[in-house]
Simulated assay, not measured.
Amino acid sequence: MTDLRIGLHALGIGTGANRDVIDAVARRAERRGFATLWSGEHVVMVDEQASRYPYAADGKIAVPADADWLDPTVTLSFAAAATSTIRLATGVCLLPEHNPVIMAKQLASLDHLSGGRLTAGVGIGWSREEFDALGIPFERRGARTARYAEAMRTLWRDDPATYSSEFVSFDAIRVRPAPSRGSIPIVVGGNSDNALRRVADWGDGWYGFNLDDVDAVAERMHRITEMCASAGRSADELAVAVALRSPSVADIEPLAALGVTELVIVDAPPADAGEAVEWVDGLAAEWIR
């Protein structure tokens, strides 16, 4: 038997943006033993996308520009209200697009109300068009993300909190409530070497998205291990969640052997809440052992 968990990335987009479906999927996923509900983010989508989407061979995101795409903290708040034990995760929040003081407040509020069930998955973003629309520099977004994460951890740890960096500074402020466990785990999304370096340098874990297969996960895990060693830490302390392009049940054991802690199933629920319950049951019958 393996202790690898199964997560579900299905809420917040398209049919998964409907209130009744969110309630139905969240409740049924909890009852059927899924470990985590994941919800991703784009603030802005555009019809003509020049930026390359890094998680598809053709460089194009599969989600239509006119699809509904909810804010993940709002989506997960509704999921939290419908459940009591299943974990919740942003997968991922595009951290450099947000004011980190406000984001720290939003995440801590969700964690507080959910009873400490939140994991903050963060990424640096890939769409220059999105950053342009928000008036945020696309360049140096990796450095901005690192400092924002550092600032949020300071706000969650210290009361009052003081922090100063190139990108954000504050002095003797209180941002309450504090997270239920004193902090919120921050896992870093992305499959590139630069993303894995962020995992090793300051992440609590890694969310690898839309990887080709187990061999691709193994190669990336090897790189994380090397980078963690260079950073003076052990890769064993990281939480590792991955989503594969075409996962199968046969992947569970080899992924667990690699040190993966959660396999995330990415799919879209039916638009009807009743059918969504049956859909979760079907996934559970296939994946939950």
Rank of each mutant, 00 (worst) to 15 (best):
D68S: 12
A285F: 02
G116R: 10
A161P: 08
S114C: 07
I184H: 00
N99A: 07
A24P: 13
T119K: 13
A151W: 13
Y207D: 05
G14R: 15
V242I: 11
W69T: 06
A268R: 13
V240E: 04
V249F: 11
A17S: 15
S234L: 07
E166G: 13
W38D: 07
F170A: 04
T36P: 00
T162I: 03
D201C: 12
R5S: 11
V264C: 15
P269Q: 02
A26W: 05
T225W: 00
G208H: 13
M103G: 13
W279K: 13
G121E: 03
R157Y: 02
E237M: 10
V168P: 11
R220D: 01
V187N: 06
A133P: 03
R147A: 10
Y163D: 02
D20W: 10
V25I: 08
Q49D: 05
E226L: 10
R32A: 12
R147H: 01
A89F: 11
I22G: 06
D58C: 14
A133E: 03
A10V: 10
G208R: 15
G182H: 08
D68P: 05
D158F: 14
P160W: 01
V122P: 00
G12W: 02
R197N: 07
A231M: 00
P100F: 12
G123K: 14
M227V: 07
S169P: 11
T162C: 10
G135L: 02
F209L: 04
L258V: 04
S51T: 09
Y207G: 11
I124P: 00
I61G: 08
I224D: 04
I224Y: 07
S109M: 12
S192C: 01
T225V: 11
E278N: 11
A24Y: 05
V74D: 08
V260K: 12
R157L: 03
A216L: 06
T83L: 04
W38S: 05
W156A: 05
G14P: 01
A65C: 10
M152H: 09
T154I: 04
D132R: 13
H222P: 00
D193P: 03
A24K: 08
D159C: 14
V92T: 13
D23V: 12
A10S: 10
T2K: 09
R19G: 04
A257C: 08
A143Y: 09
V92N: 08
A200R: 15
G208W: 15
E129Y: 10
V92M: 13
C93T: 14
W69R: 00
R128F: 01
G203V: 04
N191V: 02
A241P: 04
G189P: 11
A273T: 08
S39A: 15
G142C: 04
D204K: 09
R140T: 06
G14W: 01
G12Y: 05
I6C: 09
E41H: 15
A284G: 12
D281V: 05
H112P: 09
H42G: 03
H98I: 01
S169D: 01
A276H: 10
E41I: 06
F167K: 08
A285L: 06
E262P: 06
A271S: 12
L134N: 10
M227N: 06
R223V: 05
